[in-house]
Amino acid sequence: MNALEISNLKKTYKTGFLRKETVAAVNDLSFNVRKGEIYGFLGPNGSGKTTTLMSVMGFITPTSGKILVLGDSPGSSKSRERIGFLPDNPVLYPYLSGYNALYVVGRMFLLSHSEINKRIGALADELGMDRELRLPVAKHSRGMRQRIGFAQALINDPELLIMDEPMNGLDPMGRKMFRDVIMKRREKGKTVFFSSHILSDIEMICDRICVIRDGGIIYENTMKGISESRPGETLEDIFMSMMGSGK
């Protein structure tokens, strides 16, 4: 059973003053994310990772292709009730305190007051948040914002967690904490799909990875398959050889 199915996804943008030129951000992309796995989505800048994630979330409309998120169309309220999303550089109600921002997010899922407090408390312990909850979000550092962003993505205990560059702006302790939280979600049978540039993190936690370039998949394999087919090489070595050789 797949948590996410993407087939023949294509997204083009019109550019130029007269909007006559067409640029393909994603071109005929197809892959599936199975339930209960951690799937890493890799690629250089401008390869189409964020465009794919935005299409999956229903924030942009694909030019063609089909996406199914937990069996529903992207952007449907039904699927969003079961999804957690962490965008790149998350910003959430800058003038509200971290607690109030999370409280409002909890209310979007129609959770009760006591349930929200319980979940915020649990997430504060899990993500090591204290000052983050008291200070206005606008006064947070990048790492603190990332934690609050992570908490808002987890507050509904999602079946599918989608994240765009979740490790950005985090110190090594923060990255370890993020990895632990993601692994714990897998143990609970949840699915995690995320893009990242930090290959060592991907290597440590992912079950499967996919590498895209110029909007298309150039490599997809399980971590076990990678270590068997290319013993002794790190993910970084493999990634660099793919980018350098143009395969």
């Binding site: 309220s77 790149d88 998350p90 979007m108 899922f109």
Partner: peptide
């Protein structure tokens, strides 16, 4: 502009 909307509209909020 600040992409705040991405967090907000990723919830079940039409």
């Amino acid at each position: 502009r600040d992409k705040e909307i991405l967090c907000t509209l990723s919830k079940p909020l039409p």
